[in-house]
Structures are given as structure tokens and as C-alpha cells.
């Protein structure tokens, strides 16, 4: 195996992408809205396609505005269909995002001859090629991949928004009705989270594509939740796990395929696989919520006999 500057850039882009995703992703997981990340990552496609077709370029601003609008639209449509169609939220989400996604695919295929937009790139991303498209950043001696600048900016933006409204995101995620009685409108933060997710997904598109971004939104956060019982550590851990997945994923992508006689494989795909591997390892080994720890505690408690639970009030009601 040989490691080049190119590999370092790829891992850096992947890491920025993972951190940008882990921040809103953690709140999606805690709110029991993981599927909403899935929905939005698919639903933004027509917004992107329209932005491409209308402006003829991949300029960032119209794309992010389109993404934010589609994020709200997805959330609103899902609510409407649930209310007026008397469907459970999973079903109404399924209706909204598949329809929007299909619309986006049609737009891309129709416009493919006019705009440089490749459906497979939209789905799986092209992390390996991101270092080829560079910009110069003041204060940095070497050209920096444009994707890294965009993703790091989005990660910073997410961090600033979540930090500014940390109390509000915490209470509206835990107990939205209580938040409403205090005058903190839970609906507002629901939509704000949808906007953050949509903007993040658009930024992540080029790097990892619309399918794999879901893994980065959800899996590191779910893994972190197995490791900690506090919100801030959960956000930090989810980000670190995302970074670890980027490194591990790229390492796997350049080392594993040669063992089986392939040249190489998709780093983005391997990143998603790495998030899954880290989840699996954590699920088995986590100190408190892990499989082994629970087994051990169960046996321990059994051996000590009934009535030895650490807390006499536990489930005492």
C-alpha cells in the first residue's frame, strides 16, 4: 500500500463530510426521525437538478437555497399527507421522498445532455475525484479541494447553529410539548433541523452521494448513543466516529480490493461500511450498553440472587 497527498485529501474531505453529517444526524436519531434524513437526502434531488438546469452551473448558493426550500417542503408535505391522508409518518414520508426523488432522476436524465451531471455520481458520490477540483484558500500554501472548503464550512455552520440554539434543540428534542408551553416553538426547531439536514446533504452530495450520506447522518450518532448518556459527549463522539470511519473506510478501500484481485473500490462505499463495522464493534463491546457488558451484568445479577439490583427503587413502581 502506498499513501499519497491525494489519499490525505480524500480522508480530509470524508472527515469534514462525516462531521457535517454527524451534528444534525445526532438530533435526527434522538428525535426518532432517522428516516427523515433518508427522506430529505432523496428529496433534495429535484431541487439540485433544477438548480443545475436553471443556472447551468454547480454554483453553491442557489443549490443551498434550493436544498433548504426542499427540506422544508419535504417536512411540510409529510405532515400534510399524514394529517389529511390519515397515514402513519413512515408511510407519508415514503410517498413524499420517493416521488420527489423520481422527479429528480427524470430531470437529471432529461437534462443530462445539457449539464454535466452523472446519475451514478449523484447516487454514490465521487470522493476519489474531489481533490482534483481545487481552490486556493488564503493562508494555505497548497490548493485545497473545493469539496473540503464547502464541507468544512457546512460543518462549521451546523456547529454554530446548534451551539446558538443548544438549549432549544435539547428541549424540543426531548419534550416538544413542554418546550411549547415555555414559548419555545418546537415546530420552528423541527423545520430548522430539516434545513440543516438538507443543506448538509447537498454539501455531501458530490463527495459521498445521496445514498451513502444517510449512513453518515445516522450510524455514527447511533453508535455514539451506545457509548454515552450525555448529549454533548454524544455529539463529540458521533463526530469522532465519523472521522474514524473516513480514515478506516479509505484505508479499507485501498488495501482490501487488491487482496481479492481488484484494482480499487469506492471510498464512499467503504466509509459507509466502516460506520457499520464500528457500530457492530460498539454494539458488542460498549462498556454499559454493549452486548457483552449486558451479558456479564445479567450473569452477575443472577449469581448474586434476586433483590440485589443496584437500585432498590429500580422499576419499583
Amino acid at each position: 500500500m502506498s499513501w499519497f497527498a491525494l489519499d490525505t485529501w480524500i480522508v480530509l474531505v470524508g472527515s469534514a463530510c462525516a462531521v457535517a453529517c454527524a451534528l444534525p444526524g445526532s438530533f435526527l436519531v434522538l428525535r426518532g426521525m432517522s428516516l427523515m434524513g433518508d427522506a430529505i437526502s432523496h428529496a433534495v434531488l429535484p431541487g439540485l437538478a433544477l438548480a443545475f438546469l436553471l443556472t447551468g452551473s454547480r454554483a453553491s448558493l442557489p443549490m443551498f437555497l434550493g436544498a433548504a426550500a426542499i427540506g422544508i417542503l419535504t417536512a411540510v408535505l409529510t405532515q400534510w399527507i399524514r394529517r389529511w391522508g390519515r397515514l402513519e409518518s413512515g408511510a407519508s414520508m415514503g410517498i413524499v421522498f420517493t416521488t420527489l426523488f423520481a422527479l429528480g432522476l427524470i430531470l437529471i436524465v432529461r437534462g443530462a445532455d445539457r449539464v454535466d451531471l452523472d446519475p451514478s455520481c449523484v447516487l454514490y458520490g465521487a470522493l476519489e475525484f474531489t481533490p482534483l477540483d481545487t481552490v486556493s484558500v488564503p493562508g494555505v500554501g497548497v490548493p485545497v479541494p473545493r469539496a473540503l472548503v464547502v464541507l468544512a464550512s457546512v460543518a462549521l455552520f451546523n456547529l454554530l447553529v446548534l451551539a446558538a440554539f443548544f438549549k432549544e434543540f435539547r428541549i424540543t428534542s426531548f419534550d416538544p410539548e413542554m418546550a411549547d408551553t415555555l414559548g419555545i416553538r418546537s415546530g420552528l426547531f423541527h423545520y430548522l433541523l430539516m434545513i440543516l439536514t438538507a443543506v448538509t446533504v447537498v454539501a455531501a452530495f458530490e463527495a459521498v452521494g445521496s445514498v451513502i450520506v444517510i449512513a453518515l447522518l445516522i450510524v455514527p450518532a447511533a453508535t455514539a448513543h451506545l457509548l454515552t448518556d450525555r448529549l454533548v459527549p454524544l455529539l463529540v463522539l458521533a463526530s469522532l466516529l465519523g472521522i474514524a470511519s473516513a480514515g478506516l473506510g479509505h484505508l479499507l478501500a485501498i488495501t482490501v480490493p487488491p487482496l481479492f484481485g481488484f484494482a480499487d473500490t469506492s471510498t464512499a462505499g467503504m466509509m459507509a461500511a466502516a460506520t457499520g463495522l464500528l457500530f457492530l464493534a460498539t454494539w458488542i463491546l460498549a462498556p454499559r450498553h454493549g452486548l457483552l457488558a449486558r451479558r456479564y451484568r445479567g450473569r452477575h445479577r443472577e449469581a448474586a440472587g434476586p433483590g440485589s439490583a443496584e437500585d432498590p427503587f429500580h422499576r419499583g413502581a
Binding site: 434522538l30 426518532g32 435539547r170 428541549i171 426531548f174 419534550d175 410539548e177 408551553t181
Partner: peptide, 28 residues
Amino acid sequence: IGYVPQRESVDWDFPVSALDVVTMGLYG
């Protein structure tokens, strides 16, 4: 006006301590 909702109305698996939850009463 203070409100005490039903206990089942929230997810108790949420990563917060008892103190965090009580402090939420002061967020407004």
C-alpha cells in the same frame, strides 16, 4: 403556569441527566 405532562409522553432513553431535565423548566 407550570405543566407536568404524562410520564409516557417522552423518551426516557434521551441522553440527559435528571438535573438537565429539571433545568429545562428554566429555559423560558
